[in-house]
Amino acid sequence: MVVSWFFDYVPAWLAIVLVTVGSVLVTWGLPFVDPDGEFAVEAPKGVLGALMLGIGTGLTIWGARGTASFDTVVVGIILLGSFMQGAVAINFYRKVYDFVSNGSLPSSGGFKRKIAGHLLILFLLLVTLWGVIYFTVWGGLDIEMRDTVRLYWTVATVIISVVGLSTRFWFMQSGFPPQIMFGGILLITGGEIFNLQLELELTVFVLSHIVYTLGFWIAAYLFISSVHNSNRTARRQYARISD
């Protein structure tokens, strides 16, 4: 984010495409949040409705890209992304609690997945770097060095953001429809590479840290109250058995 204070991401439309596609995916996932719930959609009426709602949201966002207030949408997306990242950061403490209360080490599958995730990031970065070098030297691209660096930086930011957010949000996959998870990742990535004015970037920088902290503490409260309730239930059951 700090680098973007000094130069803009290129191509500028990539951010809007990511935000639009992300919004469409998120909207398509919304009616499927709880398939057994009261608000679950009925086929075919509800499915058609969800499709239209998603396409309509995408068109609205794409159409609003030139309006003065579009920056507000991007700021909202960045803050939402910070909130979500703050909230899922509590997952580390959940793992520690799991370890302490159950005496079990984190599953080897998770550890292997993490290593594989990091290797994948490294691999993608190297492929991107060599791809950019190839196209710059032999690809006949008629772009200046400055634009090449900006293009590389944009591609690298997108890849790192998508892979990084995917690994962070992976543990939520059972509670989230995949459309919302992947749509949210594209939405946040799009927000991150959107070119805002410097003053707004600085404001967002400060606000996003505040919102991150807020997300963390709200998730911490939810976690602690869940543990507290669970302990109370266990104590009651133990007392009933003792009687």
Binding site: V26, F70, F83, I90
Partner: peptide, 25 residues
């Protein structure tokens, strides 16, 4: 014009918090 995207974001935040609560429980 920004109302629809902002409503969408509030919904996503709400779902995230609910989902986290379910996950922790």
């Amino acid at each position: 014009t920004i109302a629809l995207p902002l409503v969408l974001m509030f919904l996503v935040t709400y779902i995230l918090v609910q989902s986290l609560q379910d996950r922790f429980q």
